[in-house]
Design a protein around this nucleic acid. Structure first.
Lengths: 138, 138
DNA sequence: GTAACTGCAAAATATTTGCATCCTT
DNA sequence: AAGGATGCAAATATTTTGCAGTTAC
């Protein structure tokens, strides 16, 4: 686990720092998605808000995590699949947001059906966001 | 056109005010979605920022417009279909966001394929957000 | 006339930037 | 040692709230 964290950082030419290790670990541990506030609270006063902003931004740029489109437009992040790399996101999976408890799930097993776009439109990414009640709240 | 604007407001028990008429008209005219900033700029100094915030919020509550989930988590709104009412949104259509020009299209004709969720999950809303290059930028 | 709506001021919140210091390599 | 990362302070941007004045009905 620790190994894969460091491996991931190295693979992306990022120096191994406490905040990066800790934040990446939080994503790996978490089944769902995390918002800036989640990270801030879970890590206590350990890191500066700004460091969290910068770390998240770096991770997104490197293709380690991605932002999740949400109906309420809160900013959430989740781990990318392995195929993602710098500037190349391929996260065409389904996200489920529970209206009740707010948890965001990445449903990796559910595939996004392909969509027929009107002529002239070219898709590079498809996000399917489902909201409703999750397993635990149902 | 003006008629339908006033009709819509009346139908939702909202008093007919300049800002509501103007902002609703902007949505009807616009093919795509609008962000707070779009409305602020297009309307010039006509309305206060706060009025725009409140008007948008009211429209969302009444089911006149809805927020669009976007990958970059910018807050955008688009007209709802007629079936939407207070607290009852049914906007299961596809949104397309152009990475080039930023325009957001509501692809009403494209239907959202149904998704098989894991056991215990119940969907109330499905948003399909496609990003890429639009007709004009391709 | 009354309730609802708007504009202004200000508070609260969220995000970005600059710079000095510290840490990783 | 050098470049990159962090923390702090502060600047910006965004959103919310309170209240007095105005407008719709």
């Amino acid at each position: 686990m620790l190994y894969s964290i460091i491996e991931t950082l190295k693979k992306n030419q990022l120096s191994i720092t406490d905040s990066r290790k800790k934040i990446l670990e939080m994503f790996i541990r978490s089944k769902g998605a995390l918002a800036h506030a989640d990270i801030e609270h879970q890590s206590g006063t350990e890191f500066d808000r700004v460091t969290i902003y910068r770390t998240l931004q770096t991770f997104v740029e490197k293709g380690i995590i991605h932002t999740i489109p949400t109906a309420d437009n809160s900013v959430r992040y989740a781990l990318c699949k392995d195929e993602c790399g710098q500037g190349q996101h391929h996260d065409d999976h389904v996200h489920f947001i529970c209206d009740e408890c707010g948890t965001t799930y990445c449903l990796d097993h559910v595939t996004v059906p392909s969509v027929d776009l009107p002529a002239g439109f070219k898709a590079t990414q498809t996000d399917l966001v489902v909201s409703g009640k999750c397993m635990r709240c149902n």
